[in-house]
């Protein structure tokens, strides 16, 4: 039924997007489930990249001989090949400088997160607790105090960074379809519907958190220490918003690096406002989605369900942030 990987990938993308969003609302959403979702998204994007690589070298295949084919057959074949080739070429627009910048800012956030977790702003009470735990373990045989870590760095990295990279993969895959698919607007409206449903579910089942933001956190306490710091009374035990949790864990620079892609995309929307190639409703919708994502981050408690909003929201933005099509389409007609 489907002639190329690309055709199947569209369906896989849509199913995966819907599945990932609803999985995030599952009450027992675990790290393993998130890892499984991450593997599926990676496989999809890996396949798409291989498909694009093949398209890139496709022009070499044009140098084939006519052979026994008649001229109409030859022309039809050439038209088909040209269509597939141009589809691949259009999808390469997703490797724009802006997208590379978004990726680099995400990697900087990751490196900052690892660095802060490795060299955190440790309060005295946590030092004292760690010393007591080490004193307890000292009586164990073969206990190496120097190499002992109170939590696994790989675990906290997977838990905190993998969802963000899944969102990045979904955003990039969305841009590929937005550039190359003639029916991209259908997928765009599907993403918007998914975002609205996720938002409704989130607002219905989760209550907002009213807290004053403690912006004076520079270094941060690092990933994986929030619960113990709450128990020790270093930070308030009341439920915190996602933004406040990020401020505590990675400090102001961490929050800045995480919000930098959203800021850049907002600037792209504003730039698009002054060009005629993008519809106004797309710009408005994109800015509204960014505002909603920020409000959810600032006024709702940190929860895995927010992942559904991030995923569907950034998938919408992938379609909304691109400029309108300006390329000239070649149309071949055969007159008999």
């Amino acid at each position: 039924m489907h002639k190329t990987f690309y055709d199947s990938a569209v369906y896989f993308y849509v199913c995966l997007l819907i599945g990932s969003c609803f999985a995030a609302f599952y009450p027992d959403a675990s790290d393993s489930m998130m890892a499984f979702v991450g593997v599926l998204w990676s496989l999809l994007v890996f396949g798409m990249l291989l498909w694009m690589l093949e398209r890139l070298h496709y022009h070499n295949k044009f140098t084939y001989k006519l052979g026994k084919k008649r001229l109409p057959e030859h022309l039809l074949d050439k038209m088909k090949r040209q269509k597939v080739y141009s589809k691949g070429m259009r999808s390469l627009k997703s490797f724009s400088v802006v997208n590379w910048f978004l990726l680099v800012s995400l990697l900087i956030f990751f490196i900052w997160g690892l660095w802060v977790t490795h060299s955190p702003n440790m309060p005295e009470s946590l030092y004292a607790l760690n010393d007591r735990i080490l004193y307890y373990f000292k009586s164990f045989e073969n206990f190496d105090r120097d190499s002992y870590r109170f939590f696994s760095f790989m675990d906290v990295s997977v838990r905190n960074i993998l969802p963000l990279f899944i969102v990045a993969l979904a955003y990039w895959a969305g841009q590929v379809f937005a550039y190359s698919n003639r029916n991209g607007h259908i997928i765009m409206w599907l993403c918007i519907s998914l975002f609205v449903i996720s938002l409704l579910l989130f607002v219905l089942y989760y209550t907002p958190v009213y807290n004053t933001f403690n912006l004076g956190v520079w270094g941060g306490y690092g990933w994986g220490r929030i619960d113990v710091l709450k128990a020790l009374g270093v930070i308030s035990s009341a439920s915190q918003s996602s933004l406040q949790v990020r401020l505590y864990t990675l400090g102001l620079p961490g929050v800045f690096f995480l919000y930098l892609p959203a800021l850049v995309v907002a600037l792209i929307f504003i730039r698009n406002m002054f060009t005629k190639s993008t519809d106004r409703y797309k710009i408005t919708l994109g800015l509204v989605i960014l505002c909603v994502l920020f409000c959810i981050d600032a006024f709702y408690a940190d929860d895995t369900a927010a992942f559904a909003l991030w995923l569907s929201g950034w998938s919408c933005i992938a379609f909304l942030s691109i400029r309108g099509r300006t390329d000239v389409r070649k149309i071949y007609r055969i007159y008999q």
């Binding site: 979702v37 994007v45 990249l49």
Partner: peptide, 29 residues
């Protein structure tokens, strides 16, 4: 602003492989 060189695709493939390995680590370990 389009980069059509295959180098960008190879870079992206390496990055996606890293994410894939991270996902597999989270799943299997």
């Amino acid at each position: 602003m389009q980069i059509t060189k295959p180098a960008s695709i190879y870079c992206a493939l390496i990055l996606v492989s890293c994410i894939l390995l991270t996902g597999l680590y989270g799943l299997l370990v």
